[in-house]
């Protein structure tokens, strides 16, 4: 809550005194709240910190003292061992390439359609818009069994294309981009058209650059969503070579016994890239959530 500012026309001294009393009252509990906030923040990041420290321990390390997890000796042996002996590098690459292409294609296909609906004239436009938005009411989880059949009959099971294509069409993307494109000032578009700008040029030279905030927000969400997607890659991949990280990580649970260090190293390898991306893009992510309300 922001500090109230005194309206300039208020001269009454009793009111001013009341106000300063209130302000003292206002701040007196702040430090308690900040401490509660700090404890909560530490609890939220502690598991992630613990994971990273465990990954730096010698293989097979176990302790009954929780503090000792964080103390030296540290080693990077687990990382080299996992990268050399397991498929985790391949899985990281799969996750990256699938997330990257999904994001690129999704942005391309969705922004083209949103542009047509927002800026071009054609018949049955409202019908098409409503049809494209029906997807908001079709949860992927509830159609996953028939989707598997569709992908199977198209020969997409156990292929990169099978991991990417079903995840491209986003009704949410259509809504967000259309409303963004709608808000591009009319004068800009009219003057471009008068200058002889073609429709496609209008799209990629004027509309797209002006919609960067929306595009980057949707892009970040699509990328993170794809990077972390579990259910579809779990069903659509058969060979270990094609696993993405979320599908591959549980393999360590069975293959490498219940020792802590290697599984947590696998976890850290899967998480460090997204944590770095998060620290870089935190502002856009937060903004993106508050103007789209996109979940996950």
């Amino acid at each position: 809550m922001s500090m109230p500012q005194l309206a300039p026309n208020i001269q009454d001294k009793t009111q001013i005194r009341q106000k300063s009393l209130l302000q003292r009252n206002r701040d007196s509990y702040l430090w308690i709240k900040v401490i509660i906030g700090l404890i909560a923040a530490v609890l939220f990041i502690l598991p992630v910190i613990w994971m990273i420290f465990v990954s730096l321990k010698p293989d097979g390390y176990v302790t009954k003292n929780p503090v000792e997890w964080f103390l030296p000796p540290y080693t990077l042996d687990n990382y080299t061992r996992l990268l050399e002996e397991s498929l985790i590098l391949k899985w990281t690459w799969n996750s990256f390439i699938v997330a990257f292409i999904t994001t690129l294609l999704s942005l391309l296909v969705t922004s083209l359609a949103a542009f047509a609906i927002s800026r071009l004239k054609f018949r049955y436009k409202n019908f098409i818009l409503v049809f494209f938005l029906l997807g908001l009411m079709i949860p992927g989880e509830a159609t996953i069994i028939p989707l598997y059949e569709v992908a199977k009959s198209l020969g997409l099971i156990d292929t990169y294309a099978g991991l990417i294509l079903p995840m491209i069409a986003s009704s949410m993307g259509i809504i967000v981009l259309k409303s963004f494109f709608d808000n591009v000032p009319k004068e800009l578009i009219e003057s471009a058209v008068i200058d002889g700008c073609s429709t496609f040029k209008l799209f990629y030279k004027i509309i797209l650059p002006l919609s960067k905030p929306a595009i980057s927000a949707i892009g970040i969400f699509t990328f993170i969503g794809s990077w972390n997607n579990f259910l579809w890659p779990y069903l659509a991949t058969l060979s270990e070579d094609l696993y993405t990280l979320p599908v591959g990580i549980p393999v360590f649970n069975s293959n490498y016994s219940t020792a802590y260090v290697l599984p947590m190293t696998a976890n850290a390898i899967a998480s460090i890239p997204v944590i770095i991306a998060f620290l870089i893009f935190e502002k856009q992510i937060v903004k993106g959530i508050s103007f789209t309300g996109i979940k996950g």
């Binding site: 809550m1 939220f44 972390n228 549980p250 976890n267 998060f278 935190e282």
Partner: peptide, 26 residues
């Protein structure tokens, strides 16, 4: 109203970006 507010926001949000496999394993 504290200098830590950005840290709070980032800390509370951090787990959301992790994969379901990672958090389950953790």
């Amino acid at each position: 109203k504290t200098k830590l507010k950005k840290f709070f926001r980032a800390a509370y949000f951090l787990p959301s970006i992790l994969s379901v496999s990672v958090i389950s394993f953790l």
